[in-house]
Computed example of a mutant assay.
Amino acid sequence: MDRLIGKIALVTGAAQGIGLAVAQAFASEGAVVFAGDVQTGKEAEGIKPVRLDVSSSDDWQSVVAEIIATHGRIDVLVNNAGIVACYEPVHGTDIESWQRVLAVNLTGSFLGMQAVLPFMRRAKQGSIINFSSIWGNVGVPGAAAYNAAKGGVRNMTKNAAVTYAPENVRVNSVHPGLIRTPLVEAQSDDMNGGIIASTPMGRMGTPHEVAAGCVFLASDEASFVTGSELVIDGGYLAQ
Rank of each mutant, 00 (worst) to 15 (best):
residue 221 E to C: 06
residue 180 R to T: 14
residue 100 R to L: 14
residue 137 N to C: 15
residue 82 G to C: 02
residue 219 S to F: 11
residue 223 S to M: 08
residue 136 G to P: 09
residue 46 G to Y: 05
residue 199 T to C: 13
residue 78 V to I: 06
residue 203 R to E: 05
residue 154 R to F: 04
residue 202 G to N: 12
residue 232 I to W: 10
residue 74 I to A: 02
residue 73 R to L: 05
residue 194 G to W: 05
residue 172 N to R: 02
residue 99 Q to L: 13
residue 54 V to P: 03
residue 60 W to I: 00
residue 12 T to K: 04
residue 113 M to R: 01
residue 106 L to T: 12
residue 138 V to S: 14
residue 120 M to V: 01
residue 128 I to W: 00
residue 239 Q to A: 11
residue 47 I to Y: 10
residue 92 G to H: 13
residue 193 G to W: 11
residue 232 I to F: 10
residue 87 Y to W: 14
residue 84 V to G: 12
residue 129 I to H: 12
residue 84 V to A: 15
residue 84 V to H: 10
residue 31 A to N: 12
residue 27 A to M: 06
residue 67 I to Q: 09
residue 206 T to A: 13
residue 12 T to H: 04
residue 228 S to V: 14
residue 136 G to Q: 07
residue 34 F to P: 05
residue 235 G to K: 08
residue 112 G to S: 00
residue 17 G to H: 09
residue 143 A to C: 10
residue 91 H to V: 14
residue 207 P to S: 04
residue 30 G to I: 03
residue 174 V to N: 07
residue 19 G to F: 04
residue 136 G to W: 05
residue 156 M to S: 07
residue 107 T to W: 01
residue 200 P to A: 11
residue 87 Y to C: 10
residue 122 R to C: 04
residue 126 G to L: 00
residue 204 M to R: 13
residue 89 P to A: 04
residue 98 W to L: 02
residue 236 Y to R: 13
residue 191 M to F: 15
residue 38 V to R: 14
residue 87 Y to E: 15
residue 232 I to Q: 12
residue 239 Q to H: 13
residue 13 G to A: 03
residue 18 I to C: 05
residue 52 L to A: 04
residue 4 L to C: 09
residue 235 G to M: 08
residue 135 W to E: 15
residue 175 H to N: 07
residue 117 L to R: 00
residue 111 L to G: 02
residue 92 G to C: 11
residue 110 F to A: 05
residue 162 V to E: 09
residue 175 H to S: 03
residue 235 G to P: 05
residue 106 L to M: 14
residue 196 I to F: 11
residue 73 R to E: 08
residue 189 D to G: 09
residue 33 V to W: 01
residue 230 L to P: 08
residue 3 R to N: 06
residue 223 S to E: 11
residue 192 N to Y: 12
residue 238 A to K: 13
residue 113 M to Q: 01
residue 125 Q to V: 14
residue 111 L to Y: 01
residue 135 W to N: 15
residue 66 E to R: 11
residue 236 Y to W: 14
residue 108 G to E: 01
residue 39 Q to L: 15
